[in-house]
């Protein structure tokens, strides 16, 4: 019976799942995005390795590197250009909060950013497109966790798949 075979394969695959899968560490070029869709607002929490944004993960050493860092912060601040929710939902940017790394001596540094959108017609909200990959060429993947009144989900965004839909 084919379905039994399928299930057997499924169960086998479950057993083989790597333990490390959930314990996500820091990977250069790989960002994380938490999307919380509430009744009227969307909260996006982005975690971006500094390397993906500017190419190094330490305090800037010269004016050129400082300028790079400032440019990345400016890009991340321009949330209306960075995230495009379904137009019909009529979402507008409500707040932006960017935490640039403090360079406290660790091997890695992340940029944390929080965005809040308010939506006039949340029922129409079906997807969010991001232009992060266009702005940050070294970024090749964003792991997304999403929660909405309808349920939870995970997704993987990439330069080829830059629209999160549910």
């Amino acid at each position: 019976m084919p379905s039994l075979f399928f299930s057997a394969a499924l169960i086998a695959a479950l057993a083989l799942l790597p333990v490390a899968h959930a314990a996500k560490g820091h990977a250069h070029g790989e960002g994380r995005l938490d999307v919380a869709i509430g009744k009227e607002q969307i909260v996006l929490s982005l975690e971006l390795p500094l390397d993906a944004a500017i190419g190094f993960e330490r305090a800037p050493k010269n004016d050129k590197e400082k300028a790079l860092l400032a440019a990345a912060a400016a890009t991340l601040n321009d949330a209306a250009a960075l995230f495009l929710p379904t137009p019909a939902a009529s979402c507008t940017l409500h707040s932006v909060q960017i935490d640039m790394p403090q360079f406290d001596g660790g091997a890695h540094a992340d940029i944390a950013a929080n965005y809040t959108f308010r939506c006039a017609n949340p029922a129409a909200l079906k997807s969010i497109e991001t232009t992060l990959f266009r702005s940050f060429k070294r970024l090749y993947r964003i792991e997304v966790q999403r929660v909405s009144p309808a349920g939870q989900g995970a997704a993987r965004l990439s330069p080829k798949q830059s629209v999160l839909s549910w």
């Binding site: 499924l10 695959a13 479950l14 799942l17 899968h21 959930a22 966790q145 999403r146 929660v147 349920g151 939870q152 989900g153 995970a154 997704a155 993987r156």
Partner: peptide, 15 residues
């Protein structure tokens, strides 16, 4: 703490 819906989607990604 695991979001079960997210973990399921990750499972499907693996499968």
């Amino acid at each position: 703490a695991v979001m079960p819906g997210v973990a399921l989607d990750e499972l499907w990604q693996t499968l």
